[in-house]
């Protein structure tokens, strides 16, 4: 379970000024739930996810994963989280098989168990045909599936997915979303950050809307519909942010 309390991140600029990337954000994600984090570029989504996964230290505020404070025990927390990064890089000169085994070893998984887990993930994600090709030669969809398999190699109870379907074709897109759904149904807590409004509508019960580092709304989709009187998610956004914010309007309706 993820519990985020008053999470804040301030970056120093070289000229001495500061930039608040994430501003007192609080939310929770329960096991079996897919929580959607929504917002335009630069809203603070990725920074929040990095703090939750222990890659960045919060300036103030806390993140608890199953009751453990991330700042206190980053290594322990990292074991609990499968984090799919936004610009996920794979070692171009290694094969997906090698990448997956490498990460399995870093998570202390024994060789035999790791091989079995790789086969299982390859079955689920349809990776067998390119398992032994170099990652540099794979298509975007194949790379993304490899990355998702990499995030799930240690079978973590918590998934943090940053734009998992970015740049994918329809088929890969559907496969990955269905896969995420089965993972949540199996009891994992899933935190999903995305631009794609239709994905959020179909996948998530509760969503959080981040704008300029702040969580401006957090509720079940049905409640948000009632509150704003709008049916479509994009209209709900515009209503919440205020239609005057043209940059944001452009971003979400695009």
């Amino acid at each position: 379970m993820i519990k985020v309390t008053d999470l804040t991140k301030v970056f120093p600029n070289p000229d001495g000024t500061e930039k608040t990337a994430v501003d007192h954000v609080s939310f929770e994600v329960q096991p079996g739930e897919i929580y959607g984090l929504l917002g335009p570029n630069g809203a603070g989504k990725t920074t929040s996810l990095r703090m939750i996964s222990g890659l960045l230290k919060p300036t103030t505020g806390k993140v608890h994963i199953d009751g453990i404070n991330v700042t206190d025990q980053p290594e322990n927390v990292k074991r609990q989280i499968g984090y799919l990064t936004a610009n996920t890089g794979l070692y171009a000169r290694l094969t997906p098989h090698e990448v997956l085994l490498y990460f399995a070893t870093l998570y202390d998984i024994q060789r035999a168990a790791a091989e079995q887990r790789v086969r299982q993930l390859a079955d689920w994600l349809g990776m067998h045909e390119y398992l032994n090709l170099r990652c540099g030669a794979l298509s975007t969809g194949q790379k993304q599936r490899t990355s998702i398999a990499r995030a799930l190699i240690a079978d973590p109870p918590i998934l943090v997915l940053d734009e998992p379907t970015l740049g994918l074709d329809v088929l890969s897109n559907r496969l990955i979303l269905e896969f995420i759904r089965t993972q949540a149904d199996a009891g994992k807590a899933v935190l999903l950050s995305t631009h794609a409004l239709d994905e959020i509508e179909t996948m998530c019960r509760r969503i959080g809307l981040i704008h300029n580092g702040r969580l401006i709304a957090e509720d079940e989709l049905t409640n948000l519909r009632t509150r704003t009187g709008k049916a479509r998610l994009s209209e709900i956004f515009l209503d919440l942010v205020g239609a005057t914010d043209s940059v944001f309007a452009e971003e979400v309706t695009r």
Partner: peptide
């Protein structure tokens, strides 16, 4: 190449 962030995700 963006692999560093992936690597830092691991508990190492």
């Amino acid at each position: 190449r963006g692999t560093l962030e992936t690597l830092m995700v691991a508990p190492v």
